[in-house]
Amino acid sequence: MFTNPTFMFIQVMNSFALGMNLFIIAAGLTLIFGVLRVVNFAHGAFYMVGAYVLMTMTNLIGDTNTGFFLGVLAAALTMGIIAFFIERFLLSHLYDKEHLLQLLFTFALVLIFKDLVKMIWGPLQHSISYPPAFKGAVDLKISYYPAYMLFLSVVGPVLAIGLWLALEKTRWGRLIRAARLDREMLSALGTDVKLVFSAVFVFGSMLAAMGGALAAPRIAVDPGMDGLIIIDCFIIVIIGGLGSLWGSFVGALILASLTVFGTLIFNEWEIVLVYIMMLTVLLIRPWGLFGHPDEERH
């Protein structure tokens, strides 16, 4: 099986597509941590909200391309609005408090969102159709490959480059990077740091919801879908380095490859493999592959 080049090609493609979906979600988590220094347990819940909003939109508009893409947009916007209120009226009061309070707060959000989702959409499992444009398979000459997985493989890198450019080349990007390095100095220089924090939390949460909406057609949408993804996200940002965009990109690819190839080679040991990888990184480079040692001091 492993000597078959077509088979190996498909598995590499599988790893990449899965990795890109994970990256979109983890990028939001790492961005929020990098700037706000808040470990957001509710990131998985925001991902879940994204999937449910997409479901509502495709139910309203129909299983069309328009329905799907407007749905993804609506998922990100809805979560952005909710995140704005969460940050402005609740989370912002906890920045100068100890980390434990922030953790408890985001954990409380997880429980609240779980119940809200069940109240609004019910306890049953749901499935969202692929957008018609990416429903079937594409002939890659060596093999047929699911169109939606190719779509994810394109969206991920495009978003990564877009985010990188935004962080490096725009004024807002510079402010965000400055807030990461020294929030007091930035504030002393006259920048409204509160606004930067708010924007980062909103944007990071929008990425979670968008990632949830994009993942939705491949999985079941149910009130428990937040649990697994948050663990994956933490593994990714620990491997890649908390706060690092490219770290989460590489971390996502590593986790996805371990998942896919681990299933093939070790099967029952696959889950252990992921944790061994994480432990190794923590022992050798506690700040992660792309992180900076000084991040720990904050």
């Binding site: 099986m1 498909i10 598995q11 599988n14 491949r218 999985i219 079941a220 428990g224 190839f261 093939l264």
Partner: peptide, 29 residues
């Protein structure tokens, strides 16, 4: 939640029938 690896293996097997037992949300995925 990701079944792409086993599905690719399944496609490579010469079995004519798949007998499955994955349940719940896993079955949907």
């Amino acid at each position: 939640t990701d079944y792409s690896a086993v599905i690719s293996q399944l496609m490579g097997s010469d079995c004519d029938t798949v007998a499955g037992a994955v349940w719940g949300g896993g079955f949907i995925a």
